[in-house]
Write a protein that binds this DNA or RNA. Structure first.
Length: 482
RNA sequence: GGCCCCAUCGACUAGUGGUUAGGUCGUCACUCUUUCACAGUGAAAACACGGGUUCGAGUCCCGUUGGGGUCACCA
């Protein structure tokens, strides 16, 4: 057996946003290709003209790019096996489809959608399984020609051989068998001249020399049709790998009904690409634990070097947003501050803070990053630095308006005003000195100061807040209570 | 319902015949921090069930139950 170059493909249909399930499939394909130094192809499955959404392809490529998933061949990146839009390959499908008919592997059918609907209804009424009853197989050559010549709309259907066992080995599921009698005479070519997924996908995967098909588990039941087609053409069947589904918390197939599924939404909410990739990769896949070392955080390069199909889980994985949040926070805490700042800047807009004062903004970001699960939590977390003329909540009034606190505010204010530049350590020192000089300590020292400065009981480190405020604001706030 | 797939803590998973069944998220407690968070330590928490095979099954086989997917001129 000669070593063939690994070629995998991600074959989405351009119907709009990018589903996280699609992202996971794309990622697995990408990781697999990169791991084996092969090629990652993107092919657009746009054979359903009714579902095409403008700009969907651009959006898709864009999202993948944003997340660091690049491809070798596909839209806007022509390779040796294009075109990569199925809608531009119609003549190829036509050619092969004719071949199938000629060799008796497929046949013309002329039922109208209404007739089919009627048939289905009858089957349901009789309590039978609904499936095409293969009636057009009985048409004589003459009848077929007559229909064709009269311009009657037609489809081409797969002529499924009866009483056969169809068997294949899936790289993640193992051996899977089907009874051919259960397989529908699937439509291969629609009446509008476009192929269905089944025909197009088999032809393209062959023509594009795809070696491994990595896709979602929902495709398993259509594999027999594909195998029949490969056999009819006399082609080699690529290695199949059906990866488990991503699930809602209730274990049903991950859907929009139960929360966000659009990758765009996650990006907009301020999930970092590293976190998204890391998290999604770990849904249904996990490297073996080498020497008992267990890890959760992986860079893209580490994912690539570790990724193999045999480590893919065979059962579905619930999309656990809590863990994503944790992981995103891990990345936010450890990210290079300058890079994180670039990503964060949009979230500082309309905050009232001076966007040109990057040093200050970075300092603020650095003090609040530990609280951020997502970048879009920034506005909420920086409110504390910008609010004006806040009221002291009733429950804290007693703590603020008393003799001790008065002493503290007064002393601290003097120190602040007499200081040179305000620093974290400097303010810490002032606070300590204030405690010593006034005799107020512990909770009675820190809590009133915090509340006087922020109006809130909890928040970031006091000295950081002081530095962010600056001398002027600090002393004017303190003055209010004197 | 037919067909197909799946089954380890609430979730993600490690485990490939001999383990006190390990880790991560989440939960709870304690420590640290004169706040919250972070960090650290610890706790509760799982092999769906029933039969085999075997000296020995979470690991292999069969069945049951449960969950999921799919049954289009959509992908």
């Amino acid at each position: 057996m000669s070593e063939k170059e690994v070629r995998v493909r991600f074959a989405p249909s351009p119907t709009g946003f990018v589903h996280v399930g699609s992202l996971r499939t794309a990622l697995f394909n990408y990781l697999f290709a990169r791991h084996f130094k092969g090629k990652f192809v993107i092919r657009i499955e746009d054979t359903d003209r009714t579902r095409i959404v403008d700009g969907a392809v651009e959006n898709l490529i864009n999202v993948l790019k944003k997340l660091g998933i690049d491809y070798d061949e596909g839209p806007m990146k022509e390779g040796d096996y294009g075109p990569y839009y199925q809608s531009e390959r119609l003549s190829i499908y036509k050619k092969y489809c004719d071949e199938l008919i000629e060799n008796g592997y497929a046949y013309y059918a002329f039922e109208t959608p209404e007739e089919l609907e009627e048939m289905k209804k009858m089957q349901q009424l009789e309590g039978k399984q609904t499936a095409y009853d293969r009636r057009a197989r009985n048409l004589t050559k003459e009848e077929v020609n007559e229909n064709l010549n009269s311009g009657k709309p037609f489809v081409v259907r797969l002529k499924v051989p009866l009483n056969q066992e169809i068997k294949f080995t899936d790289a993640v599921k193992g051996i899977i068998k089907f009874d051919s009698n259960q397989v529908d005479d699937q439509v291969l070519l629609k009446s509008d001249g476009f192929p269905t997924y089944h025909l197009a996908n088999v032809i393209d995967d062959h023509e594009m020399k795809i070696t491994h098909i990595i896709r979602g588990e929902e495709w398993i039941t259509s594999v027999p049709k594909h195998i029949l087609l490969y056999n009819a053409f006399g082609w080699d069947i690529p290695q199949m790998a059906h990866v488990p589904l991503l699930l809602n918390p209730d274990k049903s197939k991950l859907s929009k009904r139960q929360g966000d599924v659009a990758v765009e939404d996650f990006i907009n909410k301020g999930y970092l690409k590293e976190a998204l990739i890391n998290f999604v990769a770990l849904l249904g896949w996990h490297p073996s634990e080498k020497d008992g070392v267990v890890r959760e955080i992986f860079s893209m390069d580490e994912l690539i070097s570790n990724f193999t199909i045999d480590r893919v889980q065979s059962s579905g994985a619930v999309f656990n947003i809590d863990k994503l949040n944790w992981m995103n926070n891990e990345y936010i805490k450890n990210y290079d501050l300058d890079n994180l700042f670039d990503l964060s800047l949009p979230y500082f807009e309309n905050s009232g803070l001076d966007l040109n004062d990057t040093e200050k903004l970075k300092f603020i970001l650095n003090t609040i990053r530990v609280y951020l699960d997502r970048l879009d939590m920034i506005p909420e977390k920086i409110k504390i630095f910008t609010k004006e003329n806040f009221e002291i909540p009733d429950e804290f009034k007693e703590l603020i308006y008393n003799e001790n606190s008065l002493k503290v505010f007064k002393t601290l204010k003097d120190k602040v005003e007499n200081s040179d530049e305000l620093t974290v350590d400097g303010f810490k020192q002032m606070l300590n000195d204030t405690g010593k000089e006034t005799g107020v300590k512990g909770k009675n020292l820190f809590k009133p100061v915090r509340i006087a400065l922020t109006g809130e009981e909890h928040g970031p480190e006091l000295p950081n807040i002081a530095v962010i405020y600056g001398k002027e604001k600090l002393s004017s706030l303190l003055s209010k209570y004197l």
